[in-house]
Design a binder for these strands. Structure first.
Lengths: 134, 134
DNA sequence: TATTGTTATACTCTATAACTATA
DNA sequence: TATAGTTATAGAGTATAACAATA
């Protein structure tokens, strides 16, 4: 039985996954955080900056800088909310949607690589258990 | 089936666990990283600073600051290696051992709380799967 | 008054480079 | 020459406080 702490295991699992997804995303010139933002923007209706931040569990001030970068790369666009001009609606550009689609496949491969040490059934099980914990 | 990314799940699992272990360790005036260092020092033979750092997967320069803090609190002690004076052997003090013992119990409780959403069998399973991935 | 986005700022965690002392 | 510990420094990543615009 493992004597390693849960905190150690989670931290290093995270590190190892980052080592795999980082290079996987490199061709698309985005990092894991930017990928996370783009993923959350793939919704039926556009989200405000604040809504996007809340779904990711990050601060709205952090979201500003992330969107600045993604907008500079023409992957997302901001436009004022028609009814509430305090808000920005954030949407993927057509180019952003293409990049996200390809990046999603690449991240999927990286995740499979991360889980490669487990047999197929345990991979699904691990994902499911983790999902229930968060 | 979960649509959330593995990266998101691992990051937030980590955050949630930290939110539980942090307060659990507060009475002992150490944080999670210091607890990790102390845990790794509970070995039959004393470790050098570098050996301790390597077991935790952190840089030796990071270890210096961590040990400075722990030494200030009289939880660990450094003494020169008798045969190789470049090295410091690091050992828990008697007080450090007592604190570690109590802190370990507190962290154990926090980990159980973290896993509380899963039935007993799945808790062991999750731990085991995670251990095999890291 | 409260909310959204923004900016400036500061804090935490970590690593890299350069130094000292030993080997 | 190489290694262990140390220091100074810099880079991520993040949050807090304060402001402008709007509700």
């Amino acid at each position: 039985m493992s004597r390693r702490r849960l905190g150690y295991l989670l931290k290093h699992a995270n590190l190892r996954l980052t080592e795999l997804t980082g290079p996987a995303l490199e061709p698309y010139e985005i990092d894991g955080r930017e990928f996370g933002v783009m993923s959350v923007l793939r919704t039926p209706e556009p989200l405000s900056q604040l809504e996007a931040a809340q779904r990711l569990g990050i601060d709205r001030t952090t979201m500003v800088a992330l969107l600045d970068g993604l907008e500079r790369k023409k992957l997302v666009g901001r436009r004022p909310h028609p009814a509430d001009r305090r808000k920005n609606m954030v949407e993927l550009t057509d180019h952003g949607r293409e990049v996200l689609e390809a990046a999603t496949r690449a991240v999927g491969v990286a995740e499979e690589e991360f889980l490669a040490g487990l047999p197929e059934e345990d991979r699904r099980l691990f994902r499911d258990l983790l999902d229930r914990l968060v």
